[in-house]
Design a protein around this nucleic acid. Structure first.
Length: 499
RNA sequence: GGUCCUUUGGCCGAGUGGCUAGGCUCAGCUCUGCAAAAGCUGCUACGGCGGUUCGAAUCCGCCAGGGACCUCCA
């Protein structure tokens, strides 16, 4: 029995996973900033960590999965313009800040539902935890690692670095950071360029503001995660996840803050997903190459050849390892679309099949190969969540399943145990762990009934060699976007053509 | 400029020093009233140069390309 190994960004190597409290896992994942719509790039961490969450539960852990909503807004460029993203946009859209935040939070939740991600067990908001953040900042000041300047509070990085290894997570050297000083307004409030804001004094035009011991202002970006993670997961917890671009300064700062307040390293395993790229370049606002999720689902974007179903996106993301970059292209997405369809159809066939024992049919080679492929699901997931390899194995099993359905291979070529294990494990991995679901939204019993009627009529016509009628039914349905397939065993299947 | 990562067949991608990953595309065949699907077969790659090794896509060095972070960023 292999054990779960996770690549820890902090140690830069794979480590055997053990949880702090036996049977329980505490996991924190950086959630969205709800100042705008989520794009394809954002989908990656949520799907990646959804699978990790699902897998940990599959392993029997009780997981507390905390994913925050950043609704308090941060600086576009610290110190340069005293306007945070959210309040700026609110003015543009003539909405109350919280109205805007609510709108994008709803949209985000909707998108997550499309992706079939499980809800976190706690989804705290930054604005709902101002008290905790202020409290933590006070602790930092009392400990001597933060100082007040002009109504703002900064973390003293140099002091922290003197007795802690600041920069270890992101591979940074403090001296380099101090040298890389940039000429920014407001920098003079800080003792050192490397210091980061814990609390910012709010200028009059800044709409989101709270009272604090240092005046009216708003929390710095990094403190929310430290405060909320500590509150819900404790001083030290098992897993912290997020995109690789958050490594610095965000997570590095989190470590520093939490270490001082909690007197221990906050996180045992840091997990970071890589970026989704377009033409080899990271998808991001600053590159102007963003494809929003709503656009992806509707196909309404100049870069998109067509609309893509959320499950196709999910599958696309799972087909590569989470620590590799993943390059977007219509070609790649369409390849995923077809692959997913093939896999899902094989899976559905398997579900509908039942074992028929028959003497002397056992194919020892197939039996051995199949059991190995099934057993490897777990092995691959245990190896730093290698979903791509799990899928590869499933694709190797697909021809076996399809051949059984077509009766090219008897079901009894496998032993009853292996066949049933195949059925059971495919269900567990396809649905429970990888979180895939049907792309056919035909859970409509009326439509099911109508289709069954057409299939019956067509079958009768075929049996009378009335091909004009049978073809008419199939062709007309095709025009409606429904494809009808004759299976080799005499049954007929239908599905929506365009996913 | 600093730090780090990466470079695989037509495309996307996995990869442990020795054994065909997988998907998509393409070609051929089988099945089929036809179609679609499915099955089978074929297409055998590892940026360049050098080194270590019995043996390297996999380790080391140099060169070249690409990228990420250093600033909000999944």
């Amino acid at each position: 029995m292999s054990e779960l190994k996770i690549y820890n960004s902090y140690s830069r190597q794979k480590e055997v996973f053990t949880s702090l409290t036996p049977g329980h896992v505490g996991m924190y994942v950086c959630g969205p900033t709800v100042s705008g719509e989520s794009h394809l790039g954002h989908a990656r961490p949520y799907i990646t960590f959804d699978v990790i969450y699902r897998y940990l539960m599959h392993l029997g852990y009780k997981v507390r999965y905390v994913r925050n909503i950043t609704d308090a807004g941060h600086f576009e460029e610290e110190g340069r313009e005293a306007e945070d993203k959210i309040s700026k946009k609110a003015v543009l859209e003539k909405l109350e800040p919280m109205e805007l935040v609510q709108k994008y939070t709803n949209l985000y939740h909707w998108a997550m539902e499309q992706f079939n991600t499980l809800k976190p067990t706690i989804e705290p908001t930054a604005t709902g935890h101002i008290v905790e953040q202020v409290g933590m900042i006070e602790e930092l000041i009392n400990a001597g690692y933060a100082y007040v300047s002009n109504g703002s509070v900064y973390f003293d990085v140099k002091k922290y670095a003197a007795n802690h290894d600041y920069g270890k997570l992101s591979g940074r050297v403090l001296d380099d950071l101090l040298e890389a000083t940039r000429e920014l307004e407001g920098q003079d409030e800080k003792k050192d360029a490397a210091d980061f804001a814990l609390w910012k004094n709010a200028t009059p035009e800044h709409i989101m503001r709270w009272k604090s011991p240092w005046g009216v202002g708003f929390p710095g970006w990094h403190i929310e995660c430290s405060a909320m993670a500590t509150k819900y997961l404790g001083a030290q917890f098992d897993i912290h996840g997020g995109g690789m671009d958050l490594l610095f300064p965000h997570h590095e700062s989190e470590i520093a803050q939490s270490t001082i307040c909690n007197h221990t390293a906050p996180v045992r395993y840091w997990i970071h997903n890589n970026m989704i790229t377009i033409d080899g370049r990271k998808m991001g606002k600053s590159y102007n190459n963003v494809i929003k999720l709503t656009e992806l689902f509707s196909g309404d974007h100049p870069l998109l050849a067509k609309a893509y179903h959320p499950m196709v996106i999910r599958f696309f993301i799972l087909q590569t390892h989470y620590r590799s970059t993943l390059d977007f292209s219509n070609e790649a997405l369409q390849a995923s679309e077809k692959g997913l369809k093939r896999l899902w159809e094989a899976y559905e066939k398997l579900r509908a099949m039942s074992y028929e024992p028959r003497e002397g049919n056992l194919d020892a080679e197939l039996e051995a190969r199949s059991s190995k492929l099934i057993a490897e699901f777990k092995e691959f997931m245990n190896d730093d969540f290698s979903t791509a390899k799990v899928l590869a194995n499933m694709f190797e099993l697909a021809p076996v399943i399809n051949s059984m359905k077509d009766k090219t291979i008897p079901v009894s070529a496998l032993s009853k145990e292996t066949f049933e294990l195949l059925q059971q494990q495919m269900k567990v991995y396809v649905e429970d762990i990888l979180g895939l679901k049907s792309v056919n939204e035909a859970d409509n019993s009326t439509l099911q009934g109508v289709m069954q009627l057409l299939i019956d009529i067509r079958r009768e016509a075929k049996s009378k060699k009335d091909f004009a009628t049978s073809d008419k039914i199939r062709n007309q349905l095709a025009q409606l976007g429904i494809s009808l397939k004759d299976e080799k065993d005499g049954s007929m299947n239908w599905s929506f053509e365009s996913l």
